[in-house]
Design a protein around this nucleic acid. Sequence first.
DNA 1: CTTTGTTTGTCTATTGAATAAACAAAGATT
DNA 2: AATCTTTGTTTATTCAATAGACAAACAAAG
Lengths: 386, 386
Amino acid sequence: MGTMTWNQQVVKKNNKALVLQLVMEKGSLSRADIAQVSGLNKTTVSSLVNELLAEELIYESGPGESSGGRRPVILHFNKNAGYAIGIDIGVNYVLCVLTDLKGNIVVEKNQAVNRTPYSTIMSIVQTMIQSLMEEMPHSRYGIIGIGIGVPGIVNKEGSILLAPNLGWTNIQLKEDLARLFKVPVIIENEANAGAVGEQQFGAGQDYQNIIYISAGIGIGVGIILNQELYQGKNGFSGEMGHMVIDMNGKRCNCGSSGCWEAYASEHALLEMADQDVDTLESLIQSAESGNQVAQSLFENIGRYLGFGINNIINTFNPDQVIIGNRLALAQEWIEQPIQTTIQNHTLAYHQNEMQLNFSKLGKYSTALGVTAFVVDNFIKGEEKIS
Amino acid sequence: MGTMTWNQQVVKKNNKALVLQLVMEKGSLSRADIAQVSGLNKTTVSSLVNELLAEELIYESGPGESSGGRRPVILHFNKNAGYAIGIDIGVNYVLCVLTDLKGNIVVEKNQAVNRTPYSTIMSIVQTMIQSLMEEMPHSRYGIIGIGIGVPGIVNKEGSILLAPNLGWTNIQLKEDLARLFKVPVIIENEANAGAVGEQQFGAGQDYQNIIYISAGIGIGVGIILNQELYQGKNGFSGEMGHMVIDMNGKRCNCGSSGCWEAYASEHALLEMADQDVDTLESLIQSAESGNQVAQSLFENIGRYLGFGINNIINTFNPDQVIIGNRLALAQEWIEQPIQTTIQNHTLAYHQNEMQLNFSKLGKYSTALGVTAFVVDNFIKGEEKIS
DNA sequence: CTTTGTTTGTCTATTGAATAAACAAAGATT
DNA sequence: AATCTTTGTTTATTCAATAGACAAACAAAG
């Protein structure tokens, strides 16, 4: 079980995946280039490339520039070999995207919702998927899978154990959708998905160890270590919103007290604000129009975020911390206080070269993250077909 | 570089390592057993076993029990094929062990020290190594390497950047020793080493994701995820002693304030105690003889430890948390308050099946941890020789 | 325009690993 | 004594990577 055995098929599969990955990343290169950067023999590369051509995962274009000899045949990744569906289920919206294999959004649907019983959301999701499938261009592999991000605790088997803000417990969304659409379905926690999204398509593309902070109503964290999502024993990692940053602090609705998200979330922000301000957007507008109260509110939130990030840096020594979800909208107002807090509290060695960035994908982090899962699965599982 | 290519040699190396690992773990089994549990072909196993026999890493003993057919030849791991040296450099001691390849201590030396300039420690270490080598039994491979655990920040290249309690900065201990003894040398942070020690030989043998808390003068944390030590970008991970658990808390000598180790370390304990009590041991004795003040001191320390552990659980969703180093001596007095704090603060889902244990190796965690590194390196690098 | 050298990609033969099948050895069961 | 089981080896086969030869396509120098 735990013991993995190795054989030639594994070697081939991995080398093929390596070749494909190189074509995906570099965009366009020749067989000779692949042989050089991968260290594989020219013959091996040629053979693997030919298989990938037959599977239509890559294609050849006209000859490229000669560098003093025969002109190379340029290879490209066929990003339209299939399409992935990514769905972000939020507290008051469902966002649905159809992407090609490089994560480009082809079709997009966004629907506001006000109540979130499972049956309601399920039928919305179902309709959206069907309509996306109708608009999908023709392709060799069609829909390669559906990925879903939810604000809640998801175990490794894909069951949604608890999504407090949706009022869900023990939901088998994965099985329900797989039965309906007969494609692979992946369910992930919204923060984990966001982390993968930023890693693959957003701000984190050049980093190995990334901590993605999803700062919304609550705070969740997606942890990418050595390029791979870390999920913990049961898949519950990253519930850092309930990390205690003030032992004697105020009560959190999780039952504990002094939790990070009781201070540094959108919920906390609105709680601190005047009664009449009821959205993050309006507070940002206030700050932009010079309202000092709003500005200092953001400064506080930034400071609070900074404390948690200090803990993250001391714990993980990451390459990069990315701040995403709703509060990233307030980047202009919170970035400086966060940086200041880190400088005042974090060990100098740890600050070294650590990047603090904000989400590049904005509201798409989660949806694109789950499509990344789907694409990854497809690429890695593909070889079974040939 | 980042791109790893695969070939038959890699396959063989991994399968051979797998076979060896099975023999190491199960203690004694036949070729047929290996074939069955590994899924490898009988022929493949036979061939790999024969190579391992030639390398004297395993040996055959007389035939075992028949289960209705020919009696199997039983294989054993040759734990005496070589020996590893593990050294734990503390603030007031140097502990040195010589172990066989299964981590059994063969010879042990412990020396108290009162001042810690590098030159002093270096000459002590050197003498101890030499004397260990003289007492070492004869073996095929002799000394396979030296591992050293230090209370400080070690980068991935093995340079000791900062060891505040020793007064060291930028020490090249690894190179100095490698030059002297011409064997592989590994330097690790004391908490990381302790984590690996407990994982391989101690309390953590059956767990995948282990967080080892080294609670001594300060607090350091060793992080093992998916069976592998996580070191972070530069090797600085696990400095959780400086995780903030009280934003408005007391000053820490790191420059920040509210750090976990300002509340939950041995240093913090002694600070809270009466002026005349100056060792952990005497405080434990007080508590055992019924002194209520001492008992409530430990209760507080336990509570404070619990807050940090709460953060750890919510962050990592680990299989197991191990408490080691000095404060583990007070297990009897701190275990219950820790458990209570966790129960009161940590999300129910995360507590699920999570194990809280205390160090099994006691003062040997770090020393055995670094020998585990050495042995691991030896086993995995061994195939080059054949 | 010819010659030379270079780069690209394929073809052919070889190597090295895992594997399947046959087989021999050793023992249990009837 | 005959038969079945289990263990481990021998033999032949398969499959992927590789080295080396080679052909095609091109640049640069004479």
